[in-house]
Design a protein around this nucleic acid. Structure first.
Lengths: 250, 250
DNA sequence: TTGAGAACAACTCAATCTGAGAACAACTTA
DNA sequence: TAAGTTGTTCTCAGATTGAGTTGTTCTCAA
């Protein structure tokens, strides 16, 4: 039976109540470590557990708009700085028993943000914080948010391979070394600096030179690095593939 | 307030009514062309237009289960043959005005199926048919299903690059040529037979030899081809990348 | 002021991978 | 039996990759 026939002469209240929420896996890099925006829940269910920022989708807003609104509320961000955050849909989670209160389908989103100020307490006044992803165990997480976060992290690692979205973790102008550090942080292992440099500059539209340089060399020495901004490519061709991992070697 | 008190005082009806449906972009290959399972709508809105098979998610079923159920209803498939169909979540579509009757969030899924019998008329008795994707214009499609189909096709093209899912369009045993034809059909351009052969056999876990061969050579001659079955890899390393297209050359 | 160490950028080189074509045997149909 | 087709393997030049080296510019501390 399809939805259209079902809905002809519909009354929404005839059908099982389903709530639709948007949740956001917001990632940023602070102090060389990948961090995740989390809320400490003050009320049941899962009081005291960490949860993803999120909430009900409003009647007049698109899913992406709702996700961006939730992100804005939790980070206190607005305007140009909010607009620079990359936001994409991650997937929907709708196991019948994932929320003990009622049937809730959550449309999860994934956000890449440059280093941001500390999050602000929401109107709901739960504690909000950037937490290193390494500090998480799924035991501390509400609902199926551990699973959603795992999926988000894997999506993030994968997206760096074939899109230029690593630049979204950085300020508008950045050095190749900073860009490499994004990859190293998200992928979790070091890359060869020289080869990375060559590769980034050889992929059309990945980065473009600003002509400028950093004010100073590195913290412990070295020349001033050239500055780049994101290019206009939406996909990287050829891609920057992760080195094969053990599980792929078979 | 403890969890029990909270749940007791919780009224789902306090929240905006949203309907959640599952829709399926089901792809198969017939006669060397990519086909899509579509339903002809009998009733308004969009009467006479083509639409994706789909319907309400049931109170006790997961999203993926709902999608598989819709697919089963529309194809008449069951058991082992249904189980062999690859099904994954594509994304959710929830623009406030995408359905003129009420707020409907559709969780779209993507399915890869081997060549199947003609679809059966559903209980709803709308016409169901496998349609070549080249025969579609979005003008003929209901709701935002044109957009969903476009996203599904792009996802399919991309998935063939880094997963072994092309095998899901084929019978359990297949030849390298048949596998290449899947790629050519989905990607829409011919591939070099020799290089494809070399590449497929060199990727660990993509295919494994059955030891057997086809009964006959090709329709117009040639030797018998060796038979393979899908290997146990879930990802292809290294990936089978599509040749760069114009838009990527910049 | 200078020496030591660090880091950016460019280069080298061997190993590997890719694209394009050719070879050849096993099969088909006419 | 001849002619054409196809599956598979091989060849080879060009591109890409991984790993290391070099040269230079800079910071910090003696």
């Amino acid at each position: 039976m399809n939805e259209q026939d079902f809905l002809a002469g519909y009354d929404p209240r005839d059908y099982p109540a389903v709530a639709v929420t948007v949740d956001v896996v917001a990632l940023t890099i602070r102090d060389g470590a990948l961090h995740l925006l989390l809320i400490r829940r003050g009320a049941p269910p899962y009081a005291g557990h960490w949860a993803l920022p999120g909430g009900f989708v409003q009647p007049d807003e698109d899913l992406a708009t709702g996700a961006r609104r939730e992100l804005a509320e939790e980070t206190g961000l607005g305007g140009e700085r909010l607009r620079r955050v990359h936001l994409e849909q991650l997937g929907s989670y709708g196991a019948p028993d994932r929320d003990p209160r009622m049937r809730v389908v959550s449309v999860a989103h994934l956000a890449f943000a440059p280093d941001l100020p500390e999050p602000v307490a929401d109107t709901d006044a739960d504690e909000a914080i950037w937490l290193p992803v390494t500090a998480l165990t799924s035991r501390q997480l509400a609902f199926d948010h551990g699973r959603i976060i795992d999926d988000g992290l894997e999506r993030a690692r994968s997206k760096l391979e074939y899109t230029p979205l690593a630049t979204r973790f950085l300020a508008p102008e950045f050095t190749i070394t900073e860009l490499r550090e994004v990859y190293e942080t998200v992928w979790g292992h070091p890359l060869h600096a020289g080869n990375f440099h060559r590769k980034v500059l050889s992929v059309p539209g990945f980065v473009e030179s600003t002509g400028g340089s950093t004010e100073r060399g590195g913290a412990r020495g070295g020349p001033r690095a050239k500055l780049y901004r994101a290019g206009d490519a939406r996909l990287l061709h050829p891609a920057l593939l992760r080195p094969a991992r053990e599980e792929t070697v078979r």
